[in-house]
Nucleic acid binder design. Sequence first.
DNA 1: GCCGGCCCATGACGAATGTCACCACTCCCC
DNA 2: GGGGAGTGGTGACATTCGTCATGGGCCGGC
Lengths: 201, 201
Amino acid sequence: MIRVLLADDENLIRSALRALLSLEDGIEVVAEAATADEALAMARTFTPDVAVLDLQLPDRDGIALAAELHVAVPGCRTMIVTSHGRPGYLKRALAGGVGGFLPKTVSASVLAQVVRTVHDGGRYVDPELAAEAISAGDSPLTARESDVLELAAEGAPVEEIARRAALTPGTVRNYLSSAASKLGAANRHEAVHVARRHGWI
Amino acid sequence: MIRVLLADDENLIRSALRALLSLEDGIEVVAEAATADEALAMARTFTPDVAVLDLQLPDRDGIALAAELHVAVPGCRTMIVTSHGRPGYLKRALAGGVGGFLPKTVSASVLAQVVRTVHDGGRYVDPELAAEAISAGDSPLTARESDVLELAAEGAPVEEIARRAALTPGTVRNYLSSAASKLGAANRHEAVHVARRHGWI
DNA sequence: GCCGGCCCATGACGAATGTCACCACTCCCC
DNA sequence: GGGGAGTGGTGACATTCGTCATGGGCCGGC
C-alpha cells in the first residue's frame, strides 16, 4: 500500500484528489495539508511514502517544501502538480530531487500511475512540459539580475528597488538594463513579463 | 436527480470534481468539457440543470460562457468555481445571472450544497469573497482608462499603446496618469498590479 | 598569474514618462 | 439651457528611465 500525503491550499481540489486516489488499488491518502508548514508537520507524523504537492502554497512554493521534506522525512518521495507549467520551475524541481512534475490537465489514471512510478524511485515529467523546458532553456540572467527583476515585478520605481535590494539606484538601473536586453525586452516591465512566462522569476 | 455539466480545462480537477459530486445523493454529472465551446455544445446536447464552470477557460472566461449558456439552454443554471477570487469578477458574474460563486478553497460538502441551492433557483456567494467585493467596491476607472491600462499591462511603451488604442501618445499619458492617481499608484505599472488585484482589468 | 565573469558603483546623455493646465466636443441629466 | 462627466487632444516641464563608458574588487579556471 502506497501511503500518500496531499498538500494543496484549495480544499476542493485536495478532497477531490483524495477521492480520486482512494479509488485506485494500492494507494491510500494518509494525510492532507493546506500549507507547507502543515505538510511538514503531517509528514513527520505520518511518514508517507509519496507527497503530492501543489506548486503554489500560501507560505512557500512546492519546490522549497519538497527540499525540506527530503531532509525531514528521508524515505518520502515527492511529486509536484501544478496549474501553471512554467519551464523554469520544472528545472528547479528536478534539481531539487522531485520525482514527478505534472500539470493539472493530466487525467486521473496518469496521476495514479505517476504516484506508483515515483514511489518505485522512478521519475516522470509531463512530455509537453519537458518539451517546453528544453526549448526555453536556462535563464540567461545572473543571480542578482533575477533578484532585482523580481523586485521590479510590482511596478515599484527604481528608488524603492534600490532600497529593498540594498543597492545604489544606478546599479539597479544597470542590472535592469542588462536583464531587459538579455530577455529581448524594451523595458524592465516587459522583461518581467518575459521572465515570468519562462518561469525564470 | 440534478444533472450537472462540468467545465474546467484541468483534466485532473474535472474528473476529481466528478468523483466528488457523484458521491452525493441526488447529483449526477452528465457531461464534462475542457473549453467553453465544448461546454456549449455539451449543454445543447445534454441540457443539464446546473453548469459548474471554471472562471478561466482556454477560449473564454467562465462569466462569458455563463451568459451564452443562459441563451443557448434557458433552463440551465450556472455557478462559477475559481482559484483566484478577484472581487471584480464576482460583481460581473452576478450581473450576468450566475447563481453561485465559490473559491476552490471550499470543502466538497459546501460545493454539493451550493449545487443544490443553485438548482433550486437560489444564489450563493462565498462570504469571504463577498466581503472583499464590498470593501473593494466598484472600479473607479472610466471605460477608456481601463482599456488603456489593459494595453499597458504587458509593459509596452506609450507609443505602442497609443497605436493599439488609436489615440495620441499625449492622450494615453493623460489616461494612464489619471488611472494611476485614482488607484493610488506611483506609475502605470504599479497601477496595473493594483487593478489586477481588484479584478478591474 | 592572468583572464573572464560577476558584483557594485559613478557619471553623463538622451529618450520616455508623469504631471499639470487648458481646450473642444458630445452626451446625459436636471 | 446649463452643468457635469467622459472622451480626445496640445504644449510645457521636471522627473525618471534606459544606455553607455568606465572603474575597482572578488573569485574560479586555465
